[in-house]
Design a protein around this nucleic acid. Structure first.
Lengths: 200, 200, 200, 200
DNA sequence: TATTAAGCGAGACGGTACGTCACGTCTTAGG
DNA sequence: CCTAAGACGTGACGTACCGTCTCGCTTAATA
């Protein structure tokens, strides 16, 4: 979990945390990154921009990496795709939603920052793994449902296919530094459809 | 270019650079990252580990990012694949070579660091783009040769396919933090082969 | 005045202050200083040690300096010396009482803290001046009574003599960081007796 | 010693320390204290005022207390009094020099800060003890020379007399917050002269 | 052979951000 | 109006790292 202490229904004594702070900080992070890149993402700058004190930030996110991940998640969010009867349509839905999220200003650099931050520590960062797991699980689920339904080949390597799909938009954005547009989404759906779809 | 001054045949006056320094520094970078992650990759730490002074480093790489990219390139290196008469075989060769390079200790974190460093600056980092271009161009070339040869569909979106291929190993390594093994290579070749190969 | 609101006989509405708090806080201050020095004298630490909340403290002493002075006074207290017919005897009484007070654990550091706190603000701190005035006035009074009685030279500089007497124990304690023992008291009485006493 | 590394005649490798820094910092300390009191004596403020970086300061004085003591010493300095054939004259010389030093703007508050800083730490601060020892030793030496010469009573408690003399100016300055003027010096010389001088 | 330009390790420099700590205030729930 | 608990903004702390600069020296090509 990124938020260090969950808001319990049972509130203890003392002044409660101000909700305003959390939102303002995440907004400030995204705005700063969008404007000037990760190097402008100073904890002091975030605090100043959000109108918040540094201790208030560190009470919520114990480290800068945590904050970066939290900000990224706040702009990408979870996603569930209903059964649409066709794995190609579902893939298209997933990728379209993700592409939209990735096109928000600052999100590209923010994701690059998330990746960079994950390499900082010696230990494997749990938050990061949980995050990527969540991102890939949607695609994985669509493919598995396709196998069950019968429009995805049962002998396809779903892990590899999932990696391909999840990586495509991210690499276009972060590696090639280009916008993941609808044309890319359509092409990926087509290519993966041919790769794992049952032959006609 | 990463090395700031090319070694000209016409050497100027003064003491020439010691070759020892360049190699020792790159080795130190990789070793430090492999041992303790990017956060241990201090310029001072690199200098100490390499038995080299900081000015000697900055004479070669004007910035930390440059050094990181140079270190990554030193472990990955260029690659040219001869015409093997079959784009699947060529893809397999490319991916096998890349997977081997990626399995070296520290390279995963180093690549994550390259990505993170690219997001730092506001401007688009030329070195970084050149680097990713080199990585993708091998795959791109193989696919284009396949079109010319006739075993790749001419109507396939080669850009998207290239992105998929290049991203797969990298995302497996950096995003999913797992080793890109030969099974993944085989699966990617199979999937892409079905996706862009001419139907039987 | 250090206590911000005197306990009036006419008590207003609302819950009255708990007497327990004031004493517990002053005790906690002295205990903390005696144990670990002024740097351990955090308002939070005092509150925790006294089992009291910070607002309860700030209701009584508006600032940390006020609290320090109050704590010092609580261990030193006022002093009135009756006419004993001999200024040497009276001086001895004053200094013995003060030396005893100064020998309490923590009081030395606390007084050093009082002095340090007085230098903090740009303006001259009234509380501090009132405090030192009270400390010197006892000696001053004894000497003036001696002049009136006739066993102190009328042409002696009583201000200077007072300064000497008051400073002696304090400097031995705070400057030389040694215990102001009875031998020092006796010597000071003897020296000042010779300095301002009427010749035989 | 306050300066952390003595300037040896044998200079080591590396860039030497800039002399400018040390002087500029001590000047800035005194100026800030003179203008706005100890509370304005922020390490950041000193650095800014001196045109110096914080690390450059911490390389020279490992702690704020060290810096305060160093600044005080820079304005008070050592003192040696030659044999003048009369201990009263020598005392007068010592006290006049000290009073002059104490009258410099900011020195009073600075000395209060030194005293306060000494109470911070749990352990006894060596620098502080060495400093007060140096201050008292001049007076002590004058009195001992008087005993040898024969114009100071051999049965006088020289330790107590020294404490009285050293404390007088300091307490007038720091405790009573008044200027130690020449009249005080004259009175102290007269009083101590009567107290320890051999009777006519 | 002497000069000179550029290399070298060492380490201090200004700057900037870090994450922490303390102050004094404010907000909650309850007595 | 008091109480304890605890979050808040402010601002200083001492540390770490960046990239630069200054030292005294070494190394080779040039004059």
């Amino acid at each position: 979990m990124v938020e260090q202490r969950m808001k319990q229904s049972r509130r203890g004594p003392g002044r409660p945390r101000e909700e305003r702070v959390t939102g303002a900080v995440l907004d400030a992070v995204v705005a700063l990154v969008a404007e000037s890149g990760m190097s402008a993402l100073t904890m002091d700058a975030v605090a100043a921009r959000a109108g918040v004190s540094k201790p208030a930030m560190y009470r919520r996110w114990s480290t800068k990496q945590d904050l970066i991940i939290a900000a990224a998640e706040s702009r990408i969010g979870p996603l569930t795709v209903p059964d649409m009867g066709d794995f190609r349509a579902e893939l298209h839905a997933v990728l379209t939603a993700r592409a939209q999220a990735y096109r928000q200003p600052g999100v590209g650099r923010l994701l690059a920052g998330v990746i960079g931050a994950a390499a900082e520590t010696e230990a494997e960062p749990d938050d990061y793994r949980a995050y990527t797991a969540r991102v890939t699980s949607e695609t994985r689920h669509v493919l598995e449902r396709g196998v069950a339904r019968g429009d995805v080949r049962p002998d396809a390597d779903l892990a590899a296919a999932t990696t391909l799909v999840a990586a495509s938009l991210l690499f276009r954005l972060v590696g090639e530094q280009q916008v993941p547009d609808d044309a890319l989404v359509a092409s990926v759906v087509d290519l993966i459809g041919r790769a794992v779809g049952v032959p006609a």
